[in-house]
Design a binder for these strands. Structure first.
Lengths: 327, 327
DNA sequence: TTGAAAGCGCTAACAA
DNA sequence: TTGTTAGCGCTTTCAA
């Protein structure tokens, strides 16, 4: 495999000139450029990023940290990140933590070892302490999940307000017995969405009934089923459910169907996230849409700016209630 | 940030010795090793992979090429690849082609530029010609999709046999009017699954009725809906459908539900892939399970062996019919 | 067991 | 506009 020396020799120029051609420096004459390009093509020369990276002390790789690629919530965000990364000459290293601290720590090493130039963290279960520590030395931004007061720029939506909108929509439809299907409150988004839920109820003088709040231990489909099962067993059954994620909502939907009840006639459902599958259920799911693609794209832009030493501000994006068949 | 020189100086040894400590060479005395490790920890030294990579001419990155991360078919395979990669000191570069040749070519450059040590290709729409050409110079393996006669090792299942099993299952349930919901036959898997479908029918003396075969232009959920719609319009409506992917099957399921028909009473459905959602539908989907995780894991092992210059053989893995509520 | 030194392939400062 | 040269951080050969 040819290297820059071979090209220089064969073209009768110095390696510096070849490098200039490779990097489109304006100082090279047309004639020299043509000559060098001809040799490059003759030798099928491909510049080694390994050499360039060592020299420039960068890897042009962005590390994207997420709990699991199988969670459809992340797919559009990833698309946004990747598109923007590529447009700026970066590639992404998609890293699944599986909420496993050992894996997380291995991925953190990647940036310490210069294999990645920065991190976009989307893992709600990330070890905050270590993330904050790392952020002192390396460029990091958070996407979706974030931490108030931490000195890490983030991109997110207003979860409290979005939940408020979702629940208000159910109230406007005449529902009073509205259940909340949420997840462990160690996650900020769960706390905020509960607050939005409670605010909407209070605003319409509906009592917040603790029995109607189900805290799922995990965020899987089965947890949605299980939560719905226990809500259905209540003496005073709810007529509507607000789930803090589509996956939970889809679990609830299946449980309702399995009990011979109809959605939305017997029970209405609102989900959260607008994952692609929320459109494939029967009935389709009313849900809160986050501007996933733009969130990803914005995180990438922010991270790249941060890598380049620019100052970066956090940003809160808009959400949208998408009304479909389940309400 | 400290480098290997700083460590050497402070420890009073040469950089060679520090390097030996880093790479666990046995020739270092316990005493020296302790001394060096102490300094490493004092300086919070982290070795730069950039320097190491240039020196060893490898990136320790595997490029994984797939059409889209949002296709749940790939998620378990990716898990298998990643786990195996990490265990062998590699990381993966997940690359979405979106079936876009320009993107594909940019990813191919990554391996030409030494940014990746090899490729696992899972994209059925990959440009065969260029892939074969690339495979002459760089380590490549194919997963799921493969090419007969090409000199590229692959991991796959026997699609023809799996389809045969799926259709035979429907026949055993008493179905005679069995439709096939398939995709464009430019893909090998579609051709093979049709052959399996036809073989099962012929074996039980059921005529292959061209009208009952729907070729979807694309592999999305909507294509499944649309295909089912046109199958429902047939004068002699099928009583069962075999879809070559779960996503198509889920589209079909929704269309059937929307027409007030019941699954499996009015129409039975078998899918293919056992994606996680196939368990979340109402009713749950009978489907063909591929050993996704093992396929991913095996591809990674094969690729790493290939990178290390070992000889690698292709492998055909087992599948399994998973009978659930839709039949 | 350890050290000196070369060199992986490239970029960029400086000189011409 | 082009060339010379140092050096990015590491591994490895050879010699001691």
């Amino acid at each position: 495999m040819a290297n820059i020396q071979d090209v220089a020799k064969k073209a009768g120029v110095s390696v510096a000139t070849v490098s200039r051609v490779l990097n489109n420096h304006s100082s090279v004459t047309e004639k020299t450029r043509i000559k060098v390009e001809k040799v490059i093509s003759e030798l099928s020369y491909e510049p080694s990023m390994l050499g360039r990276n060592l020299r420039t002390s960068e890897s042009k790789l962005l590390l994207v940290l997420l709990p699991s690629v199988s969670n459809p919530y992340y797919t559009e965000i990833i698309n946004g990140i990747e598109e923007t990364a590529i447009r700026n000459g970066y590639n992404i290293l998609l890293c699944e933590t599986d909420s496993n601290p050992e894996r997380e720590s291995r991925y953190f090493s990647l940036v310490k070892n210069r294999m990645a130039d920065g991190i976009i963290s989307m893992d709600p279960a990330v070890n905050k302490e270590r993330l904050f520590e790392l952020a002192k030395t390396y460029p990091i931004v958070q996407c979706s999940e974030y931490d108030k007061g931490a000195d890490i720029p983030f991109v997110t939506i207003n979860s409290e307000l979005a939940a408020y909108h979702a629940v208000k929509h159910l109230i406007k439809l005449g529902h009073k017995k509205i259940a909340l299907l949420t997840s462990d409150e160690q996650f900020l988004y769960a706390r905020e969405r509960r607050l939005g839920y409670e605010r909407a109820l209070r605003e319409f003088d509906i009592e917040v009934n603790k029995q109607r709040i189900y805290y799922a231990g995990n965020i899987g489909f089965e947890n949605g089923q299980q939560g719905m099962r226990s809500l259905l067993e209540l003496d005073d059954r709810p007529t509507a459910v607000f789930a803090v994620s589509d996956i939970l909502a889809i679990g609830a939907l299946k449980e309702i169907n399995s009990n011979g009840l109809r959605v939305p006639n017997d029970i209405a459902i609102v989900g959260f996230d607008k994952i692609s599958f929320s459109n494939m259920t029967y009935p389709t799911l009313t849900t809160i849409a986050q501007p996933m693609y733009r969130m990803g794209s914005m995180s990438a832009t922010m991270l790249i700016n941060k890598i380049q030493g620019k100052h970066v501000e956090s940003i809160v994006m808009d959400h949208e209630l998408v009304i479909r068949e389940s309400t």
